[in-house]
Design a binder for these strands. Sequence first.
DNA 1: TGCGTAATAATTGGCGCCAATTTTATTGCG
DNA 2: CGCAATAAAATTGGCGCCAATTATTACGCA
Lengths: 204, 204
Amino acid sequence: MKRKEDKRPLADEIAQAIQLGEYRSGEWLRQVDLEERFAATRFDVRAALEALVVRKEIQHVRNRGYKVPALDPEMLAHLREVRVILECGAVPQIVANATDEDVVRLAELAEAFSVAAKSGTHLDQSTTNREFHEAMHALTANPVLVETIWSIRDRGRSAPFTIWRTPDTLHRSDEDHRQMVHCIRERDAAGLSKVIEDHIRRRH
Amino acid sequence: MKRKEDKRPLADEIAQAIQLGEYRSGEWLRQVDLEERFAATRFDVRAALEALVVRKEIQHVRNRGYKVPALDPEMLAHLREVRVILECGAVPQIVANATDEDVVRLAELAEAFSVAAKSGTHLDQSTTNREFHEAMHALTANPVLVETIWSIRDRGRSAPFTIWRTPDTLHRSDEDHRQMVHCIRERDAAGLSKVIEDHIRRRH
DNA sequence: TGCGTAATAATTGGCGCCAATTTTATTGCG
DNA sequence: CGCAATAAAATTGGCGCCAATTATTACGCA
């Protein structure tokens, strides 16, 4: 069996499955299961799992295997705090760098999320949300900052399945995205920081 | 040959060797060499190298091996910028959390660095510097923030061999540490942020 | 002497294998 | 029926191996 010669590293595929709630907190990831599911060799699976351990997205227990860590409230609070620092730290550069075209593009991406929020699948919502934030963070023109932000977000599993349990939370995220676009359009750094911080700190 | 049953993961040992300038930018890390040097099996070496790739501390080139990345000025600037965001973002919690005992401890660690700066080895300087900063960041009581800070610092190889090329730069770092302790003692968040930012942005 | 080609040596990549460990099932006893 | 012990099954961990690839050396020719 040969792994589809494609696109993303296996580690990212597994990570996405975790993000989408296909593996729950505390759940063990069996190598043999992953081999089947992802059409991968054991060697590939093991390498991917090790990478995810380094990224702290999963945990390894010797002789027992790998599992999706339970995210206790304290860890979540730590992750949120670091997100606030990073994402608010990114604001000056986002506001300074955004062109009119960028703002138009962001508005389109916010709209795409809005559509997905109303009538899309969980995957749609996750994808459009990610695309919106990726485009926004890319405005910093600092790839290290972008990947650091995502490394923290991914660890906290900031994805629909864990967050958007109700239409209300979806709606709030939709509204927050619009606010973010508005603040960027107006070059309002303080306003953008506030929206982002509130967005991150909000209890879902 | 069995690896000394000990202390730190091999990846960290290799990382430190890189930090200390034992491998230069652009240099290839030969698996067979590392096996010898670190008394490790090939399996262990390969796992360690892969971990360092995930951590972006080294780069992998297929069929050719692993190498220490050259840090171009642009990448260094990105890393510095993220360090500023993170380390200045840590300031409010450092200042809020530090007890009198903490301040005394930090002053001792700053003094240890001062001694190493005057008459210690590069390793002494690296170790005492790291200990000082570790103690300071630990005051945030946010392990995620601490490890994120270090992941960025380590990528930028913020270590003596690459930074402290002259007694003058060592002296400045010594002075900066004292200033940091002073600001913490006085609960001067703005002052501490400034010292840290200047410290990071300084061209060495 | 310099260049190109072929041969040889060295290194990397990933596979298969099996020992070690853990989990599950079975059996026997009170 | 519940528990403990044993056996069997499943899973993990790391080793050895060799094919594939790259680097180096040797050779021949102009």
